[in-house]
Design a protein around this nucleic acid. Structure first.
Lengths: 336, 336
DNA sequence: TTGTAGGCGTTATCAA
DNA sequence: TTGATAACGCCTACAA
């Protein structure tokens, strides 16, 4: 059995009330008493029992993150960095981080959220991979449970979120490609209810329009956000009678698949074909050739999100509910 | 306020005892009552309060995983897959997964473990990235806290763990390379107190010995397990008067860095230079050229570990405390 | 088969 | 400045 507050109190011949207050830094304890209590507690190795504290305080100091997976075995470096950011910032604020996974948009996902929300296990959620209309937002709003998200959804006006300016970023990217003489620019995206698809695709279209390049639906394919998806999608693009000179991708993973396919078919990426990604995961610094991409500071975003969420949970005022960041265009050899 | 067991009881004009037992599947409640209770609870959206349950039961049904990081911003696909496995299997067993991060071997790491262990927040830990002698094992054994690990350490005879046969795998790999005519085979590893370094390097040495190839210390470098580390380490190897014809790496990330460096220096990987990895992360299926590697089933391993840990926590007998798996040699173009 | 009651370890209210 | 005491929501011996 581990040592409880009662043990400490007994040892000191004090009431548990006093011990509790001394430890929690209430002002109405004698200096002397406080020091004695703190020291003794330390000596005895006392650590408050979380369950008891939570039950009494009616708050858990825990935040939840349910990883949206496409396939069970997925390996996306984006997420390990994201989780590291969440974990670090949570720890810094004396919060715990509860993690689970669930296939996006399924019953399983719903029940996971419900269990944590209703069981009062977490005080708030971090969401990402948002949909244009996202049931998670609607659900949490209805339940009055705090949440923050990476990317916004349209369900709730005043949500707190961090968002990277994908539209602007992609426009910049297209301008850059156009500046290099590209006119036939393809886009490999994802399911159209995903916020990142909407934004990045919009940026793509606006970019083309800005350069007066007509939009060609033949050049748009769904790549499922994965390496394999990019690989397959680009096969089709590279088989067109009129092959594109540039392939832009919704994320880095997709682009990696494209590089693979292009190489197999003998395209010289960076010379006869330009390829770009989005995210800026470490890995694409070392692809062959290194990949031009739009980098978002994933780790910092994760930390920022947690900080915002903690503020909300503590009932404090959030001075900046909507944070908007500019992705950084990193030009590497894949675009010549 | 969310709905409690009391609310359900009141609605049914039953005692909370009956409700509790009906829900937990005790045999001593009437069929009829049970169905009624279950249905009503469902309707009312009742979910047991975890804190209360934990406090009462004196167990947390939570397992902890503290991600060992080298740098804060790290992005290792290995971990996202590992965490997904932990999360899925935990959920399946009605356990929660608490995640944090800490730089390996620091004070911070120690205090994180201590906090979770002492605060009774987790019932057990999953460890990985083991050291030959690992303070975590010693600590947990001393505290009597259940744990399982990916890879073994020497601290405790009878630990429960899952381990991939790195030694055997690497030997097989070396034989394969030797069979292709390689004689000058380099090895990029990591800090020598890591279990994976010990094993994989041992496999490398045994492999050479088996083929009667003398060991050349010039061909051994530390690559820090990262892409950048592999990139830097291979620079040195490729500058030797007598350049190696094959470079084997402790993990896939390292190998990716090597591919990058080799390409920059004009080596044709797969022709004038062979490169191999270890882990079998998805990403290396799409490198240029695709990478020969030893694949371990990360997702399944994670699930298996959780299953073992849960068994231990539940006080049941673990029939197989030491699980040993064979990595699968996947031959791709990077070795010709 | 069902209900009563006590207590898990804390914190908060109130009185001393 | 301190202490007695009552919850928080749940589970479980024990009684009915």
């Amino acid at each position: 059995m581990s040592v409880t507050i009662r043990d400490v109190a007994k040892r000191l011949n004090k009431s548990i009330t006093t011990v509790s207050r001394a430890l929690d830094g209430y002002p109405d304890v004698a200096q002397e008493t406080r020091q004695l209590v703190v020291r003794t507690a330390q000596e005895m190795g006392y650590v408050p029992n979380r369950a008891a504290r939570q039950l009494r305080r009616q708050r858990t100091d825990t935040i939840g993150y349910i990883l949206p997976t496409l396939t069970p075995q997925f390996a996306d470096p984006f997420f390990s960095e994201f989780i590291a950011g969440l974990g670090d910032e949570a720890a810094l604020n004396n919060f715990d981080l509860l993690v689970s996974t669930a296939p996006s948009g399924t019953e399983v996902e719903y029940s996971r959220y419900q269990k944590w929300a209703f069981g009062k296990k977490v005080s708030g959620f971090v969401l990402n991979r948002m949909h244009q209309y996202d049931w998670r937002v609607q659900y949490l709003v209805r339940q009055g449970i705090p949440y923050v998200s990476l990317e916004s959804s349209l369900d709730q006006e005043n949500s707190a979120y961090v968002e990277v300016d994908s539209v602007g970023g992609f426009k910049k990217l297209i301008s850059y490609l156009v500046g290099k003489g590209h006119k036939r620019i393809a886009y490999i995206g994802a399911s159209s209810d995903l916020k990142i698809q909407l934004d990045r695709f919009a940026g793509y279209q606006e970019g083309l329009a800005g350069a007066c390049i007509p939009f060609d639906p033949e050049l748009i394919i769904d790549g499922n956000l994965s390496r394999l998806g990019g690989y397959n999608a680009s096969q089709k693009l590279l088989e067109l009678k009129e092959v594109p000179t540039a392939i832009t991708c919704i994320n880095d993973l997709t682009a990696i698949g494209v590089l693979h396919a292009a190489h197999e078919r003998g395209f010289k990426v960076g010379q006869t074909l330009a390829v770009t990604g989005f995210d800026g995961i470490d890995e694409v610094e070392h692809t062959l050739p290194p990949l031009t991409t739009l980098k978002q500071p994933v780790y910092d975003i994760a930390r920022r999100l947690v900080k915002m969420l903690v503020t909300m949970i503590n009932g404090e005022l959030l001075n900046e509910r909507q944070v908007r960041l500019q992705p950084e265009l990193i030009i590497r050899e894949s675009t010549g």
